[in-house]
Nucleic acid binder design. Sequence first.
DNA 1: GATGAATGAGGATTCATTCAT
DNA 2: AATGAATGAATCCTCATTCAT
Lengths: 207, 207, 207, 207
Amino acid sequence: MSASEPGTAATRERILDAAEALFAEHGLAGTAVRDIARDVGLTAASLYNHFAGKQELYEAVLARGVQPLIEMMQRIDGQDRTSDARAALIEDIMKHLGGRPHLPRLIHHEVISGGSYLAKLGRTWLRPLIATGIAEMKREEEPNWSEEEFPLVITAWLNLVFGHFAMAPILSVVFDTDPLAPESIERQTRFLQKLARMMALSDPGPG
Amino acid sequence: MSASEPGTAATRERILDAAEALFAEHGLAGTAVRDIARDVGLTAASLYNHFAGKQELYEAVLARGVQPLIEMMQRIDGQDRTSDARAALIEDIMKHLGGRPHLPRLIHHEVISGGSYLAKLGRTWLRPLIATGIAEMKREEEPNWSEEEFPLVITAWLNLVFGHFAMAPILSVVFDTDPLAPESIERQTRFLQKLARMMALSDPGPG
Amino acid sequence: MSASEPGTAATRERILDAAEALFAEHGLAGTAVRDIARDVGLTAASLYNHFAGKQELYEAVLARGVQPLIEMMQRIDGQDRTSDARAALIEDIMKHLGGRPHLPRLIHHEVISGGSYLAKLGRTWLRPLIATGIAEMKREEEPNWSEEEFPLVITAWLNLVFGHFAMAPILSVVFDTDPLAPESIERQTRFLQKLARMMALSDPGPG
Amino acid sequence: MSASEPGTAATRERILDAAEALFAEHGLAGTAVRDIARDVGLTAASLYNHFAGKQELYEAVLARGVQPLIEMMQRIDGQDRTSDARAALIEDIMKHLGGRPHLPRLIHHEVISGGSYLAKLGRTWLRPLIATGIAEMKREEEPNWSEEEFPLVITAWLNLVFGHFAMAPILSVVFDTDPLAPESIERQTRFLQKLARMMALSDPGPG
DNA sequence: GATGAATGAGGATTCATTCAT
DNA sequence: AATGAATGAATCCTCATTCAT
């Protein structure tokens, strides 16, 4: 009657968890199936009772991690636009990534490698996000950014949010803090919200 | 008999070039020595006349790419602080990375994987850059950022600059432009300079 | 409650059928237990409720196919020798093999591989057949074959009969007909009977 | 200066020899690459310096064995038809197969399994042979066989010739002789030549 | 400097088999 | 009687590396 009996459907989740951590750190090629299995307490052969192969496992990990982001996007897309929707969106995303800190590095691996999952990732997740963001910016009364700068602004935000998590290893070397600690995420969230206000309101004047 | 006859010292560079491209795309583990050799028109065995091993080759690629960044840092650190030093620095870095578009992805791989080269990278390159950046920000008369936000600002800049190149694969899927094309880099440079002015001058007011 | 309800004893037969087809095509080593199970609509694990293992299943398939041939031999051995006994025997064997077209290939696999079942096959089936055949030939009044040629004649007949079925795959490629179709088997039967008459009656004269 | 220095091109041939023997006995699936390598005195990994994979090695073995048969066919096809051409052809083929006694079993494996090489085998080798044989039979003045029986006659000959070698394992169990011994091959050759005369000359009369 | 050949180590995957349910 | 899950033992193949030529 325990909540997660070993050997049932829970095994699949435990494999995904272990795989997520290892794929995030070493990438697809750098991760040995045997190592994933060992972290779950299984033999490599047993993994193949749950996933058809390494590639399929990788994609399942990616899908599981990206799915909530897609849904988050869809929820936001349809809802009322209050004045601080931006701040709430930033907070939501930061919170989700904070709970799955391996995800951004995983996505970075995929993006950098130009992996096959990339096209789907772009279509189902990035494009709606961009559409939402651009629609938002168009609604500004005194916009700081021209329409052709919109994509750059969106991209900038992607890099700011994901970079915080993906760059964590080197940041924790240079600074003393762990970027994945809750208070670091909290601080980064407030910083990004402040930056968002600046980018929306300020007028940098002529170059 | 010149120092860089094809087939002599030049071979070393050609190996580094091929390795840089492949390491950037597939990472250290995902790149086969044989593939690097093939791209140079050599056999894997021949590579070992030029480099002691895969790991050493990887580090040589990393060193060759990072060295100019470090020197750039050192030059800037000692020079006069004109009003648009920031703009010039951004331009310099963007230009260097534009000429070696694989470098950011290479560094991302290293950072994400928490590779062994990372500590050196942090110490010799990132720390001076941060010191310079912080000193710069401290000199502001009406600063928008508190001292404890300084690291976040620096990190943000790192992510903005490197992200542009590292995320290129997925961006070229979502948008129609190639982020590595000269005009894209030019546009991104101007965008970042504008953003720099905003972050320095503007006052977002209370949250 | 009948003895051959589907799911009870009938399952055993269905397993044997599927196994016969696969073993005949891919041999013992080339056939996966899982594939046999799939063809029956079962899991590999379920097979072990019916057979002790792959090897045992293989032998059961072989035994089931060979048993009627042995019995056929025994019947013929004890019965009256009419003038067209040869023609009847050829017809019987061809008919049996026509109903189990996988069997010859199965036996071929076993023979070619020098499998362990081979000795038993030779002793219980081939030897009686040869004895019968030789006794038959000795009864000829004006024999075309010397006693030392008898084994060759017998072997020739084996190759002619079994070859028709075993070589079917390539023959259907070269000719347009399917050697396993009833009319092909009928034609081959008549051909072999004619050949039998030729071999018995004719006198080729000196070389 | 020895005729077959180890480590040169001769290695390829030695691999083919070892592979031919093992593939003939155990088939493609039943033969382990490691076992082939061991018989040559190599590591499995070393095999891959000479052949792209198991399948490719298998096809190379098949091609090397079948090539002489094809050429033999082509030579015969173009030459004068003397009265004992048949006897000579039988002798040639028996001799070639006698020198490569694994080949018939290898071909049997391929034929039985309906392997992919089969179509090529049928087209390049079997069809010319059949054409030659049929042309030969049409030239008979008082033919014993109708035109629609021609394919059956050809097939019979195939089975008689190849069967002698392929069935060798079980025959050596039942009889005391080794069918692959030179004198056995010699005896079988004479037997087949005699049978050929019978099939050409005799008239079995009405069934 | 270049290469063909060899190899130990490892890595993904298959497979026959077992066992608790 | 059926099955999902687990596994040890292969099996094919890749890879980084070495070395004689």
